[in-house]
Structures are given as C-alpha cells and as structure tokens.
C-alpha cells in the first residue's frame, strides 16, 4: 500500500545518518585497534600488535577478570534483591501491586550520577554511615574501608541495576497464567514445589534478560570505580579511558574496546538464543 517514493523518503535519511554517525565511528574504532602509536602519533600501520599486547601482558586479563567478578557480583545481588521483590509483588501484594510497582520505577528515573554521589556521601570516612555507627556506639573511630573498595562499586551498581533487573522479572512473573499455579496446587504441590517446578522455570526468560542487563552494563562501566571504587577496583573500561586520556594510546584502547564490544555482543547473542529456547508461549 506504500509507494516507492514513500518508502524511499522514510528509509533514506535514517540510513544515511546511521551510516555516517554510527557505522563509520564504530568502523573507525575497529580500524584504530589495528593501528599503532609511534612518537606520540597514530600511524595507520595495520597489524595485530595491540591484540598481542593484550594477551601477553597479564595485567589486562587480571583487570578483565576482576571486572567480570564485579559484574557477576552486581548481577547476583540484583537478582537476590529483585527476584523476591518481584515474586512478592506478583503473587502476594494484592491490591497494593500497582502502587508498589510505581515505587520501583521512580528510582529508575533518578540520575545515575545523583545515586552514585549519594552512596559516596553515605560510605565515606566522614560519611553518614560512619556518623550513624559512631552515634549508636558500634564504632569509635571512622571506618574507612566502606568507600574505595570493590564492595562499594558492587553496592552502588546493585542499587542502580536492581530496578532494571526487577522489570523484566516482574513482567515474566505477571505473564504466568494464574491457572497454572492453581493447577500445580490442585495436583498436590505446595508453594515451595510450585515455585521450583512451575514459577521459576517459567520466569527464566525474564531472569535471563535482567541478569544480562546488569552484567553487560557493569562490564562497560567506568564511572563507579572513579566515584566510589578507588584504585583497588579499577575495571576494564577505566583502562580504556586512561589510554584515551593521559596514557595516550588510542589504538591499544580501541583494541580493548573491540574486545568489550565482542564480549557484549556474544553475551547478548547467547542469551537471546537461550531466551528463545525458554520462551514457551
């Protein structure tokens, strides 16, 4: 029903724009990763030198593994907080369901920086938590290890990603037909068996989507370590950032970015396949 002219008019501008301002930049990133820096200048000398460096210097692998550990920690904690909340709201909250739902949404709209900053003021050595602990006489001296540790990074990012994890989980729980739960009870399964055998398997796609979200977003985060992490929790994106800044080795930075990009895309591809497999209806 749409004419050729119509189709051309709607397709051409976004195609050109995306090609120019998205495809070309991403392509430049790939190109840089094969170039080199000599005497403070980027030379268009193609080769795999950067990738070789990444594999030979154990520092990079170490930071990457730390990043993945932190990402796994954030994912796990967000699920641990988000799943019971979603389960409670979907199956037991009754009429308060909608109000509670909105209450989970609100923090989602609050600025990343604002929330990160709040944690900084809470965890710092003259922070609110230390003040509180001294006030109730649990500690006498300020405790300094709250802030500037991988723990602080995990805490802050968990706080930020829990609502993100919650949303797909809650949606998948809400989509479970209630008569399946009734059927399970009817066949003799109590709440625990019903949860393990019916609800949990049917919520797996939502769980997977939420987990992927938290993991991938943490993987590429460089702000949380700067804000609350300190040197002991430098993540892979921080290395990239410093290579593009003071360390000035764009090609090496680009090669790490390409690695992050490939890791992200293969993770997303993997979970997409699993989600398809687990989507029953």
């Amino acid at each position: 029903m749409y004419s050729r002219a119509y189709k051309t008019i709607v397709s051409l501008p976004p195609l050109v724009w995306i090609g120019m301002f998205l495809l070309l930049p991403y392509a430049l990133m790939f190109a840089h990763s094969f170039w080199l820096v000599r005497n403070g200048m980027i030379v268009h000398h193609w080769g795999l030198r950067n990738y070789a460096t990444l594999f030979q210097n154990p520092l990079y692998a170490e930071v990457l593994f730390r990043t993945m550990r932190i990402a796994a920690g954030v994912t796990l904690l967000s699920l641990l907080l988000g799943y019971p909340l979603a389960y409670y709201m979907s199956f037991h909250a009754g009429a308060r369901k909608d109000l509670l739902y909105q209450l989970v949404i609100v923090p989602l709209w609050v600025s990343y920086l604002v929330r990160g900053y709040a944690w900084k003021t809470i965890l710092g050595s003259d922070g609110v938590l230390n003040g509180f602990l001294q006030y109730i006489h649990i500690t006498k001296e300020p405790v300094s290890f709250f802030l500037y540790s991988p723990f602080a990074v995990i805490l802050m990012l968990t706080h930020i990603y829990t609502p993100f994890v919650f949303l797909p989980l809650y949606a998948s729980l809400e989509h479970i037909p209630r008569n399946l739960v009734e059927a399970s009870h009817d066949l003799g399964a109590g709440w625990r068996a019903t949860f393990l055998r019916v609800i949990l398997p049917l919520s797996l796609p939502g769980l997977l989507a939420g987990a992927t979200f938290a993991f991938v977003l943490t993987l590429g985060d460089f702000l949380a370590p700067l804000l609350v992490g300190g040197p002991s929790s430098i993540m892979i994106a921080n290395i990239v950032q410093s290579l593009f800044g003071t360390a000035y080795d764009w090609p090496l930075g680009a090669s790490i970015s390409v690695c992050i990009l490939l890791l992200t895309i293969s993770l997303l591809f993997l979970t997409e396949q699993l989600e398809k497999k687990w989507a029953y209806q």
Binding site: L81, L100, V110, V114, D126, V128, G131, T162
Partner: peptide
C-alpha cells in the same frame, strides 16, 4: 524482605535530600 529492598532503593535518595538541608554539611549523624 520486600520492605527491606524498598528501603535499600530509597535510603540513598532520602539521605541525599535530608543532608541538602543540613547546616553542618554532608556526613555525621544525626
């Protein structure tokens, strides 16, 4: 447990707002 999760989600925001009115600056309790 759900209540505790909500507390976790809102605690930093509440702290942030409250201390924006605190004469002695950020930190310390109460």
């Amino acid at each position: 447990y759900a209540l505790a999760v909500f507390a976790f989600l809102y605690l930093p925001i509440v702290v942030l707002v409250v201390y924006s009115f605190n004469r002695d600056g950020v930190g310390g309790f109460p």
